[in-house]
Simulated assay, not measured.
Amino acid sequence: MPRTAARGGPQTRARISQIATQLFLERGFEAVTVAEVARAAEVSSVTVFKHFPRKEDLLLDRADDAAELLRTAVRANGDVLASLRAATLRLVDERHALSGLKDGSVPFFATVAASPALIARAREIADDLQQTLTEELTAPDAELLAAFYVSGYTTVLVETARRQLAGESPDEVVDDHRARVELLFDRLRTGFSG
């Protein structure tokens, strides 16, 4: 019988996600069931779904972190673009998982790329993040700015992932990744003319 005493809380959520990620990376996303994740984490399937409403969210578990990062950047005093730029570049400097530059990310990228369900969920998360950013912004062109930022940053991430899947290390792509982030913010500020 699975343990149920520690069914709630962030530690349980983190443990479930860590175990699920390990199973998905070892065997592939479609090959692992939620029931197997629950057994390995010594919780019930109900507990898994309490923390992760969708199976895909067991692997793509940083959406809340990304949304909070956007909210914090927009709510900071001053220039919204400067704040978003600083927050995005901080991810690069920290080699945060949301930057795509964290060591050991290649198995994650390969697992996502091999799963239509994970690709679809990643697109839904991007749409949700765009909506979150739109709601936080007060500018009349908030929806357009949010769309440009999320689509632009997604493009940077996909290229960084593609290069690492092709054999380059995070150290080899970090400078180009940073340059593409800087270009994104230059274009957001000045436009695309010329």
Rank of each mutant, 00 (worst) to 15 (best):
V106A: 03
L144W: 09
G8A: 12
P107Y: 04
A63Y: 03
T134G: 00
L101N: 00
R71F: 14
R189L: 02
L183Y: 01
S44T: 13
S151G: 15
D127W: 06
E36Y: 02
L183D: 01
L60G: 05
R180F: 03
E124S: 04
D64C: 06
R162L: 09
A122G: 05
P10C: 14
E136V: 14
T12H: 11
F185S: 02
D186F: 02
L91Y: 01
A142L: 09
G194L: 10
G194V: 09
L118Y: 07
V106Y: 02
A41T: 12
E136L: 15
F109T: 06
S193E: 07
L129W: 00
L144P: 09
L69T: 11
A126Y: 10
F29P: 06
K102A: 13
R189D: 01
L25P: 06
A31M: 04
L84S: 04
L98H: 12
A120Q: 06
R121F: 11
Y153Q: 06
R123C: 14
G167S: 07
L118G: 08
D64K: 15
S115P: 00
L89R: 14
R3V: 12
G8Q: 12
R187K: 09
G167Q: 01
R13C: 04
S151A: 13
Q131V: 15
L145G: 08
A31K: 05
A38F: 03
R71E: 15
V112T: 08
L137M: 06
L98R: 13
V158L: 13
R162W: 10
R27K: 05
D103Q: 10
